[in-house]
Amino acid sequence: MIEPFAVPFMARALAELALLALICGPVSVFVFARRLSFVSDALTHTVFPGVVIGFLAGGVEGIFAGALVAAVVTAVALTLLTRAGALSDDASTAVVLTAMFSIGVALVSRRSSYTSDLTTFLFGRILTVTPSQLAETAALAAVILTLLLIGARAIIFRTFDPTGAAAAGYRVFWLDLWLNLIVALVVVAAVRAVGTILVVALLIVPAAAARMITSRLVAMAAIGTGLILLASYAGLLASWTASVTYGFALTSASAVVLALVLIYLLLLPLGALRSAPSPTGGRSPHELVG
């Protein structure tokens, strides 16, 4: 039997996912803490028309640029709308999300290869990642981690206590834009490999799963990265085994996300155990008094 990860395209797929794990672990912690799950979902959908336009204009190489422009524009737009109070409820976010997504579908449906193109944009092509795409992802990962490192402290403060952060002199609007841009860049980095839909899983599930094990932010980020790595390895292996050994097609990116969700489900009882109230409500009698 051939060793799966000795095959170049499998090794590149794993390397691409490892780079994504490196950024999605920490970023997912912020998405989790700021409760940005739905906003992240909206971002992944609003990037879609950019991906399509980029593809129509410049082929596969145009996807990156198209996604980047759309991501930055939507990050700014979402931040502005939230600030103005227009996005105070989920309904308005959903309107932006579906409107942009529809534009993307309308654009892509003009092509004769409609179905296969749509599948590529939505679910990515992890097994066809090229060395130059790997280099692009690595560069973007470096930018994202640098932005995160610079803003992390202020964003944590703002997330925990918006008024307190403003009182301390932080500009909350700029911090919100900062984080939205980081999330948007993650979507851009991941879109070719796992597609616009599945990237949501990488932004939400790792921190949610890590929270079952720890309540420390740094540990959550590290565990989140570890879980994506584990899911990537398991998912790619399952996908390979399914097609090589058993002869049925299991999309690699879907297998990775399914593995990630499976890990989450396995950790659920642990989370329930952690938050289960003890006879004193999880505190010593002394703490209840003090």
Partner: peptide, 30 residues
């Protein structure tokens, strides 16, 4: 500035010391 406790998310994953350290953030820098 000391806000009201109930205006904050009690489930936020930070320790007491980390909350207090936030008071130093502006001095420490970005």
């Amino acid at each position: 500035y000391v806000p009201q406790t109930d205006s904050l998310d009690a489930d936020f994953p930070v320790t007491a010391a980390q909350v207090v350290m936030m008071g130093r953030y502006r001095r420490i820098g970005w």
